[in-house]
Design a protein around this nucleic acid. Sequence first.
RNA 1: CGGGGAAUAGUUCAGAUGGCUAGAACGCUGCGUUUGGGACGCAGAGGUCGCAGGUUCAAGUCCUGUUUCCCCGACCA
Length: 488
Amino acid sequence: MSNKGITSRSESYSQWYLDIIDRAQLAENSSVRGCMVIKPYGYAIWENIQRELDLRIKEMGVSNAYFPLFIPKSFLSKEASHVKGFAKECAIVTHYRLKETKDGMGVEVDPEAKLEDELIVRPTSETIMYDTFSRWIESWRDLPLKINQWANIVRWERRTRLFLRTTEFLWQEGHTVHESHEESKKQVIEALEMYKRFAREVLALEMYGGKKSESEKFAGAVDTYGVEALMQDGKALQFGTSHDLGQNFAKVFNIKYINKNGELEYPWQTSWGVSTRMMGAIVMSHSDDLGLVLPPIIAPIKVVIIPIYKEGNKDKVMEFVKDVESKLSTVVDRVHLDERDFVSVGFKFNEWEKKGVPVRIEIGERDLEKKMVTIVRRDTNEKEEISVNSIGNDIKIILDNIQSELLKRSQKILEEGTTQVSSYKEFKDILKGKKGFLKAYWCGSKECEDAIKYETKATNRCFSKTGKGNCIYCGKESDKEWVFAMCY
RNA sequence: CGGGGAAUAGUUCAGAUGGCUAGAACGCUGCGUUUGGGACGCAGAGGUCGCAGGUUCAAGUCCUGUUUCCCCGACCA
């Protein structure tokens, strides 16, 4: 499939995706619309993300569970705004059997195997989960109920974009049920704050997080909060959301419980999730001209050791290399020794740089006598020599340092990429130039929001703070500042 | 779903006005020489030109349909 690279604007990123994902081609001469293959190296990143995130989810008292991939059409249609939001992007299962074609050369759908109530491949799991919740919840003693699911999701988007908006993607979705709105609102914020901490501590990403405007909120939610990171090209990428569902779903799925006063009541619900898209955020935030740059915590390989030898001295060098490897491995995990002797040293340097391995150790004959090795940090690409005596601890410190330096860099990018604007002209000028986040006051009317979107392509990303100012578009007085940006 | 572009080797692409046996680079395989920043030489494998029709003595090239991909909108994590 030749299609001139991937996109003009994300062309610089697209080549760095290639170690992580590939476009799916399931049939000859055709590729399945907007589907991706996650390669082993990319999946290893996802597994590290999963492990770290799962830990934090469990710290909130949430348990993992799994619900069906198929949702009966009748479930999805219960909540009016929910179905309206997802109806246009659903994959639907209509039949359950194939039969041989008349010529015996293939298969076709058996028209007799038509489903009475068609099944929807989940675009999100609120409905299928909440139907079950209605049977799980009877009393205040059953609350709060906190369930998380790791799953794949299908959304038949009008327009797909490799990695950032694929037809199928992986995610985590948390769903909680509470006695009071006060408590559920606290959960929404707790999830949002957990995502922010996770992004900082694990992904080394700084971002904005806050309430979404009315038009940007989730289908079926009372309020939606989101986290928005800034990519190097000045565009925003939303990589996580947290929804206050109010009692909207409880009412239509008949989730009721008896409270402490013996009265029958509807509980209050939340849902929140992050997807494989956040790997896109990492790629687009941290990469440089040499390739990926991965924060050590999620790097499939934290340290790669590259031995350098000639025909005559291989044994001598390898003995030293193995010694360094074992010293290092007692302190640092995910250490890889690249023993391939069919590619050149330069090739290996380049390959591991492209893959974003945080630290590279080069060991050759000239290091033997000195008991020193050459190390290269991926974040700065600087070389230095360190002694092998305390190599484990030294590398550990360097890895920690890379992790925190990447966050600092991300914080700086966000700070420098954010502009406080007070006039619409300035607003437009910045979007024509460096882009980034724009903090501006907005009156809250849909008319102004739509006009800004239409005229500048920038959308309202999330709430910033309360203060005093004038709407960037109509000039009316407003006490709310919002974050705007062009986004993916 | 509207507008625009594209589909030729594993990948990125070249193949004006139709014309002999469809090319290059990189990658891949074998052998040899190499190895402190993407090594080099020689030899080799690999394509019914997205699919289905049509025009023609002759179609990768022209026409129609179709599918998929990319870009711009509307929708979304």
